[in-house]
Nucleic acid binder design. Structure first.
Length: 452
RNA sequence: GUGGAUGUAGCUCAGUUGGUUAGAGCACCAGAUUGUGGUUCUGGGGGUCGUGGGUUCAAAUCCCAUCUUCCACCCCA
């Protein structure tokens, strides 16, 4: 056989059964929490038309989209006089791309299926997304997002609900987290009040880095974007408030209360905290004015979740978007949602050793193979066990017993059943408990009563 | 996309100023034990030293390129 250099594309991974068991553990917790809050699953295709995807994630996002080459002789469609510029060429040879997240496809989905959906629509979606990013710790080119969104209501109860979902999910996983919460309307108010309304995006991007790079560097970046030092100092004085979550709204009203958007944002936040107070969360929830988030479709509340005990990027994030469906021709539909990063959560749980060890699903029973005649009897008995819901398999070759037993051992199979020629003539089997080593003889007609 | 590291057996890693046949642990296979695994003991297989070039009498070791992985930036789950 030719020995080839096997590899998989950069930033993608294979998962062995042990890893799948752990991944499924995460997915099943998320599904359980989503469903108990009334969310329903949907799926959308891996690929979308580029017209759906392009321009929704900012300039940076467009660059990170994986584009799919058209099928067939796509070069025919390229105009004869086309230059060799990549950007002009690509529009002729590619019209589909792999989805970058689940939110934009969801907006497209909602608009296309608006007449079949029941609003307010609560959906969850667990599927892979792709980004042509450079891989790093906690950063993959193919990874799973687990989105929950409710679309078609402006109630702040949903913001509070999502925080409860975060709280419940991470509680079940045993991951200690901090939830950061802010509101884009408040950020907009701050930008207005310091005269940086025209540079709102630059302002948010720079502010978002504060805890990482400090005020000096943030100022540097703001200055380079045309926001003067006077404005910077004002920003700093507003953001460094030293107030509690409860005090913050009144404080903000006193400073940026003349901004109409800001007032709306402050009110929204008050409502969220009102709902949260009704049912206190296990995790810490912090009203953090420096939380900004780069995605530009957020218009209200924004969320981010970080693991407390391990250094990893955010493991969950999201926000409210007032007009995401507007770009697809369905205006004035507000939604709010968050996305759990399953792969990062996996990495966090792995690092903290939080996975239960009995996760590997496997057969409960292995029939030892003693040869051509005996295996047929085992084949039949295995079917009878399966009828009773007991996962059973027959070792397919009459290999040495040592090999068969160590197979059972490694696969963590709880019981082995032996029926050699002697047991067959006596109508019995030997059932061995692989953990205790204890072995019992059971008559075939009593096999289904054995407490596996 | 920018900058910096890394790569030796399936896995984790040794390998001296360049110098005979590149090692260990774990894993795997076989035997001790031909109807009994997880412990122990004995033996065995397995490496084009990431790949391609170059320097040299001689390269895992030095140089260049390329790929992979990791780290920082950008951005984000």
């Amino acid at each position: 056989m030719a020995k080839v250099n096997l590899s998989i594309p950069k930033g993608t991974r294979d998962f062995i059964p042990e890893q799948m068991a752990r991944r499924n553990y995460i997915f099943s917790i998320l599904k359980e929490v989503f469903e108990i809050h009334g969310f329903q699953p949907i799926e959308t295709p891996s690929m979308e038309n580029l017209s759906t995807l392009l321009g929704k994630y900012g300039e940076e996002g467009d660059k990170l989209l994986f584009r799919i080459l058209n099928s067939g002789d796509f070069m025919k469609k390229v105009p004869q006089d086309s230059d060799h510029n990549t950007n002009s060429l690509i529009s002729h040879v590619s019209e589909k791309g792999l989805r970058y997240d689940l939110t934009v496809p969801f907006a497209r989905f909602v608009v296309m299926h608006q007449n079949e959906l029941n609003f307010p629509f609560r959906r969850y979606q667990i599927q892979p997304v792709w980004r042509a990013d450079r891989p790093q710790r906690g950063r993959y080119r193919e990874f799973f997002q687990c989105d929950v969104d409710v679309i078609g209501t402006r109630s702040m109860m949903e913001e509070a609900n999502l925080i409860k979902i975060i709280d419940e999910a991470f509680e079940k996983m045993g991951v200690r987290v901090a939830v950061k919460l802010n509101n884009r309307k408040i950020l907009q108010g701050i930008a207005e009040s310091v005269g940086a309304a025209d540079n709102f995006i630059d302002f948010t991007v720079a502010l978002d880095k504060l805890d990482k790079i400090g005020w000096d560097k943030v100022f540097e970046e703001l200055n380079s974007k045309g926001i003067d030092s006077n404005a910077c100092n004002k920003i700093k004085s507003i953001v460094e408030h030293g107030k509690t979550n409860a005090e913050l709204p009144d404080y903000l009203r006193s400073i940026i209360g003349d901004s109409e958007v800001a007032l709306k944002g402050i009110e929204e936040m008050e409502q969220v905290f009102e709902y949260l107070a009704i049912s206190p969360s296990k995790c810490e929830v912090e009203f953090d004015l420096t939380l900004a988030r780069g995605l530009n479709y957020y218009t209200g509340a924004i969320f981010e979740v970080k693991a407390l005990d391990v250094n990893m990027g955010s493991i969950c994030g999201g926000g409210r978007y007032d007009d995401l469906t507007g770009i697809f021709g369905m205006p004035d539909v507000s939604g709010v949602g968050i996305s759990f990063g399953a792969d990062r959560i996996y990495d966090v749980m792995h690092e903290l050793d939080l996975f239960p060890d009995d996760n590997l699903s496997s057969s409960k029973v292995l029939f030892i193979n003693f040869g051509a005649d005996e295996e047929k009897s085992a084949f039949k008995l295995a079917y009878e066990l399966r009828k009773n819901g007991i996962a059973a398999e027959v070792y397919p070759d009459s290999a040495k017993l040592k090999k068969q037993f160590s197979y059972a051992d490694q696969k963590k199979i709880a019981y082995t059943i032996m029926q050699g020629s002697e047991e067959r003539t006596n109508g019995v089997v030997q059932i061995k408990n692989m953990k205790s080593g204890e072995q019992t003889e059971v008559a075939i007609e009593n096999l289904s009563e054995f407490p596996f």
